[in-house]
């Protein structure tokens, strides 16, 4: 075995910078001319957006811009995608509602993105965000996992009747049922797998810079996979061509899945792996 080679508990090379406060996380970036974004989020779990009035916010101290889903659509920025197809028992692909990065016409959970305020300071952005006036038409909310697909539940997405994304059976039901019929003993259990919030200690962050000379966007992100992030923002969201978009995942303070971007484009679902 080489010294410090395979099998050695080598002390980590990255630790010195973290232990001396010299790590470089996304929020540590402070560049000249930097502005701060703050999102106006839905206070309602389920509501139509009848109108958004940004005039007062746009006129507030320090505000650079107030942008909504209409601005996003006007610039041709595509919706967020889901990458994996699961075929439902009716032979159809899973139901996939459109997910715009800023809401268009409707919000579907508390915290949903309604508008973004960009201002000279974060405090000013927050002050102005309170001045964005949104007229909501509140709808009943669906929150319970077990009953979400019941007939009497409020519909959330038109494309998904009974709030069902898919129903996916797998295995030889007849053979399994037969084995149960002839079993000596059957044990059963009902259980809940509780919803968790992943909670890496570093909250998510993004810092973007545009160079109008080279027409390149540099985006620092709390990401577990910068290349795939770039690929998707380029190929699916039309943010910029791949070679004009640089994505940097600097020091990232924990991921645990919540900062992943993975793309598995649907081509249909065939089963039976080697």
């Amino acid at each position: 075995m080489a010294e410090n080679g395979v099998g050695a508990s080598v002390r980590r090379k990255e630790d010195y910078r973290f232990l001396t406060g010299k790590g470089s996380y996304t929020d540590d970036l402070n560049v000249v001319g930097q502005t701060h974004a703050y999102f106006v989020r839905s206070p309602h779990a389920h509501a139509t957006i009848n109108s958004i009035d940004t005039a007062a916010a746009a006129a507030a101290d320090g505000v650079v811009a107030v942008l909504t889903g209409d601005d996003l659509a006007a610039d041709g920025i595509g919706p967020l995608i889901c990458g994996v197809n699961v075929t439902s028992d009716d032979g159809e692909p899973h139901r996939a509602p459109v997910h715009s990065a800023l809401a268009q016409g409707k919000v579907n959970y508390v915290g949903d993105h309604v508008a973004v305020v960009i201002a000279e300071t974060l405090a000013e952005a927050k002050d102005a965000a309170e001045k964005v006036e949104v007229d909501y038409g509140i709808l009943p909310a669906v929150t319970d996992t077990a009953t979400a697909a019941d007939d009497d539940q409020q519909q959330i997405h038109e494309v998904a009747p009974n709030n069902q994304c898919y129903n996916w059976p797998f295995g030889d039901k007849a053979a399994v049922d037969a084995a149960f019929e002839s079993a000596h003993k059957v044990s059963s259990l009902d259980l809940v797998n509780n919803r968790m919030v992943t909670n890496p200690m570093e909250p998510r962050a993004a810092a973007g810079e545009y160079n109008s000379g080279t027409e390149e966007i540099t985006l620092h992100l709390t990401t577990q996979n910068p290349h795939v992030h770039r690929l998707v923002m380029s190929a699916f969201n039309q943010l910029a061509p791949e070679h004009k978009l640089r994505v940097v995942g600097p020091d990232v303070g924990g991921g645990f899945g919540v900062k992943i971007f993975r793309v598995l484009r649907r081509v249909g679902c065939r089963l039976g792996l080697p």
Binding site: A37, G208, L219
Partner: peptide
């Protein structure tokens, strides 16, 4: 991917 990341890239 998240809304905020895309919006920041677009907004800058």
């Amino acid at each position: 991917m998240y809304s905020e990341e895309l919006v920041v890239g677009w907004a800058c």
